[in-house]
């Protein structure tokens, strides 16, 4: 940990020549200024941390301004906010959790959705151009919230013993029950949060890497390519096309994260079989 924390030198790849091609995972480590030191380790304030603060401010201002003078006949801003809210409320929360319990989870799901979506889109919006969720700690933190909530409400609804009994699907031959129980335990407690966090992280990380390859790669071809410098143009056209594609992926990943969170809540609250 301390090695990567202190090694600002990882930003400088090759001796002498300042090159960022091909991009490496080290390119995602972008310290802005040191905050404090604990023993050997210096902790930096990084670019994703700045972005997540900006997203927090932007979302807060947007929601406060667009709902401050809320009226029955909405203004344009209020109408847009209501569309986003209705999407999360009806198409995600009510659909997945069911009409009885969904309302108390809607604020959490709405907050998660807008937060993840804006932070993902930061990946392609200049001058931010760095998806916050491409640093794995951020998706892990969000997943922890979801993880605690769905186990908590499951235990609350079924009781501790009942919650474990509830994990076993009906219609099993009795000799398979212990094996399937082990499998379900593993799924509920380990692979579900793991896949939830890593799906978001991996998509944002790889998508950003792909954009960097085409755009920086085009630049490298233009500058150092010689006869190949003509190829820079198609590389940039590809880069522009992939940026549009990436916008879609970034929306989709925010949607999938919240959809799965809602389905875990709904699953934990389901009636006994």
């Amino acid at each position: 940990m301390s090695a990567t924390m202190t090694a600002a030198g990882t930003l400088l790849p090759m001796a002498g020549e300042e090159s960022h091609f091909p991009p490496t995972p080290a390119d995602f480590w972008q310290p802005l200024f040191p905050m404090f030191s604990l023993g050997e380790t210096t902790y930096y304030f990084t670019r994703p941390m700045a972005l997540i603060l900006i997203s927090f401010i932007v979302l807060t201002v947007w929601l406060l301004v667009s709902t401050r003078r809320a009226s029955v006949v909405p203004s344009k801003g209020q109408w847009f906010t209501e569309r986003v809210y209705d999407f999360v409320r009806n198409d995600i929360a009510r659909d997945m959790i069911g009409s009885r319990d969904f309302l108390r989870f809607t604020p959490l799901l709405f907050a998660l959705f807008t937060f993840i979506l804006l932070n993902n889109w930061f990946g392609i919006i200049p001058p931010f151009q760095n998806p916050t969720m491409a640093r794995v700690a951020f998706p892990i933190a969000l997943t922890l919230i979801v993880y605690v909530v769905y186990h908590w409400i499951g235990v609350q609804k079924h009781g501790l013993g009942g919650y474990f009994r509830f994990m076993i699907p009906p219609g099993l031959p009795s000799w398979l029950v212990p094996f399937i129980f082990l499998l379900e335990l593993m799924t509920f407690f380990i692979t579900r949060p793991l896949t939830l966090a890593l799906r978001l992280f991996g998509n944002m990380f790889a998508g950003h890497m792909l954009l960097v390859v085409f755009i920086i790669g085009g630049w490298e071809l233009l500058v150092h390519g010689g006869a190949l410098s003509l190829v820079a143009l198609p590389a940039w056209i590809m880069g522009a096309g992939l940026t549009v594609f990436e916008a879609l992926i970034q929306f989709l990943q925010a949607y999938v994260f919240v959809l799965l969170a809602a389905s875990y809540f709904g699953g934990a609250l389901a009636d006994e079989h």
Binding site: S99, T187, G266, G267
Partner: peptide, 23 residues
């Protein structure tokens, strides 16, 4: 309106299959 149960109850989401396949 009657209570409509959520689809999360059946967790019939293809996206979650990977969690089972890994487990």
């Amino acid at each position: 309106e009657e209570h409509t149960p959520g689809r999360g109850a059946q967790t019939h989401l293809a996206t979650d299959a990977i969690a089972y396949l890994l487990a």
